[in-house]
Simulated assay, not measured.
Amino acid sequence: MKTQEVAEKLVQLCRDGKNTEAVDELYADHVISKEPKGTPMELTEGKAAVKNKTIYWESSVEEIHKATISDPIVSSNHFSVVMDMDVTYKEHGRMAMSEIAIYEVKDGKIVAEEFFYSVPTPG
């Protein structure tokens, strides 16, 4: 798949709430995932670990009040999306956050992802 196709497929799967399926289908075995410095999962390496991170996040959620993902912006072998979420977490209460995610694609698979956001405060 070309970068545009990977981007569009990821957005559709995320909009459908199929985050683990997205990892299974679109991510390379050696993918690297980065969160902001100082967060609990600052660096995650490998497809299985990224999938486990996704499953862990999903298990921490009590209720998703609203979640949106923008259409992708694609440039060569990279694309970005904006994700906005209003979520109640089991341990941290309700939080709204907005993040920019940037992905790198090689040979039709996501090889890197990095998320940029301010760490939200419960409320």
Rank of each mutant, 00 (worst) to 15 (best):
M1A: 12
M1Y: 10
M1Q: 15
T3G: 00
Q4I: 10
V6G: 00
A7V: 01
A7I: 00
E8M: 04
K9T: 01
K9S: 04
L10I: 01
L10N: 00
V11H: 02
Q12N: 15
L13F: 08
C14W: 09
R15M: 02
D16P: 02
G17H: 11
G17S: 10
K18I: 02
N19M: 13
N19D: 15
T20G: 11
D24A: 06
D24I: 03
E25P: 09
V31T: 01
K34S: 08
P36K: 05
P36Q: 06
K37H: 11
G38P: 03
T39Y: 10
T39F: 11
P40G: 11
M41D: 08
L43H: 13
T44D: 05
T44M: 07
E45K: 15
E45C: 13
G46H: 03
K47H: 06
A49W: 10
A49F: 09
A49L: 12
V50W: 02
K51M: 04
K53V: 10
T54W: 12
I55N: 08
W57M: 13
S59V: 05
S59T: 12
V61K: 14
E62Q: 11
I64N: 13
I64Q: 13
K66L: 13
K66H: 15
T68N: 07
I69P: 00
S70F: 11
P72E: 03
I73Q: 10
S76W: 09
S76N: 12
S76M: 15
F79G: 00
V81E: 04
V81H: 08
V82A: 06
V82G: 03
M83R: 08
M83A: 11
M85R: 15
V87Y: 01
T88F: 04
H92V: 04
R94V: 01
M95N: 05
A96P: 14
A96G: 15
M97K: 08
I100L: 15
A101V: 02
A101S: 11
I102Q: 07
I102L: 11
Y103K: 01
E104A: 06
K109F: 05
V111Y: 04
V111S: 03
F115V: 02
Y117C: 02
P120H: 03
T121A: 14
